[in-house]
Design a protein around this nucleic acid. Structure first.
Lengths: 245, 245
DNA sequence: TTAACGAATTGATCTTGGTCACCGAATGGG
DNA sequence: CCCATTCGGTGACCAAGATCAATTCGTTAA
């Protein structure tokens, strides 16, 4: 991650442009908007970054004002369980919107923490709501996003409860491959983990030890190779298929 | 439930009125709208009912067109897990909106099934989106609803994963008491279960046997009394307090 | 009323994942 | 460069909840 030639070291000029020239636009809320509408969106967003690994974009109980969209990098959101453990609620990648759980609440519900060098667009929510009044397409897009988010949660978390650890893990790897492909055309069968194994375990509702064992089992079944921070998917079709085990 | 004097036998005339005279309005999307705005909402909704116990309001893979709001009664949504079991994803009570997971999808993601005599308002989503363009307050309300829903899911499901069965069960009973209070001012410490124990177990991610044992444990601790379809909450403060066990 | 079915409960046993203890490797700060 | 700290992995053991099998209870149907 300190490698100066790494793709993660984002060109500053790419990050300075507004919505109209944004390289991430095809993934973003701005997708499908015309020039004028994009200008409207551009007027209310603020580009923020670079956040360094471990830096917070917002913190639990800070006043909620804005949604955030990732231009480059990765973010996790985490909260604190009743027992006082940290609990990772989500990972967010290029083009993803985060902060939505705070809508209708006075304050944020999580810490949002950068997992690598990260740039985001800050989208003040009140102004965004006003803009939606004038741009039906934008209103529509945010609704789609809500629906997607609910479906994803239901699929991965609710249905995850009646899956084995290995199934849930494969689902996670599948998601990671899909998201990584967006960032990086090549090597869709190998994933560089930007989060710790502990974070992944927490996200999957496991102890780190159990995740470690599950990875070992998948490796012994020839489905993956687990090299520390890099996971190779050897049997793509096994991981891709919904029904497995 | 066959008792003719039961509060569940809804007066037909109450169900015939539009939004303006609706008894459920204080719970509904229409809350806070002026007469004219309510009329707009009233124009696009259709009142449907009565649905009998077990009847579907919509089914998995049917074309998604509308959200639904409960005027009277109770609904569960359920889907099918990979292993082919039914999986209860949610319970919905008076004033609750369901069908939101299907937004942005061509078809519904669940079966929605009435658990008792039930009346709903059908809200065609496209027309609703158009209406939101003209009624900022309505757009704002639906956004709040999305945020609430996401927070609720995160709280109950995600955080539920690191709770004991008894804690999750108490959380469920707490929710049930709150919702029942809305329907029925008296006896807030006793809940008539309209869903089966099997449904509750599924919703909590348990086997029916495990739920039964958990109920017995709470009873032996003097917190509840479990009489088949009726659950009495003896120690309200224990169930109400967030942190328990 | 009785028969029949599904829901609820109970006990015995097994499995999965959690807990605890430890070690080695990687990472970051002085 | 070294040391401290965090991260990742392993084994032994334990406990919560699943599974299987049997019984009781309640509701509906005949």
């Amino acid at each position: 991650m300190r490698d100066p030639a790494s793709k993660k070291d984002v060109a500053l000029e790419d990050m300075a442009s507004g919505c109209v020239g944004c390289v991430t636009r095809s993934l973003c809320l701005g997708e499908g908007l015309n020039q004028q509408q994009l200008k409207g969106l551009e007027r209310i967003i603020t580009i923020r970054g670079p956040y360094r690994t471990g830096q917070a974009i917002y913190r639990l109980e800070e006043r909620f004002n804005s949604l955030f969209i990732i231009r480059a990098g990765t973010v996790k959101t985490e909260s604190v369980s009743q027992e006082g453990n940290n609990l990772v609620d989500g990972f967010f990648f290029q083009g993803d919107v985060f902060g939505m759980e705070a809508i209708g609440s006075a304050t944020y519900e999580h810490d949002a923490v950068a997992l690598e060098e990260t740039w985001v667009c800050e989208l003040p929510f009140e102004q965004f709501e006003s803009l939606c009044q004038f741009v039906p397409r934008l209103q529509h897009k945010i609704m789609l996003l809500f629906g997607q988010k609910m479906r994803h949660t239901n699929q991965s978390i609710v249905h995850g409860r009646c899956q084995s650890v290995e199934q849930r893990l494969m689902g996670f790897l599948r998601m990671l491959c899909q998201k990584s492909v967006l960032q990086d055309e090549k090597c869709r069968s190998s994933v560089q983990l930007v989060m710790t194994k502990g974070d992944i375990a927490s996200y999957l509702g496991l102890r780190p030890e159990s995740l470690s064992r599950a990875l070992r089992k998948l490796q012994s079944r020839g489905i993956i190779r687990n090299h520390g921070k890099r996971v190779e998917v050897l049997n793509v079709s096994a991981v891709s298929s919904e029904v497995c085990k």
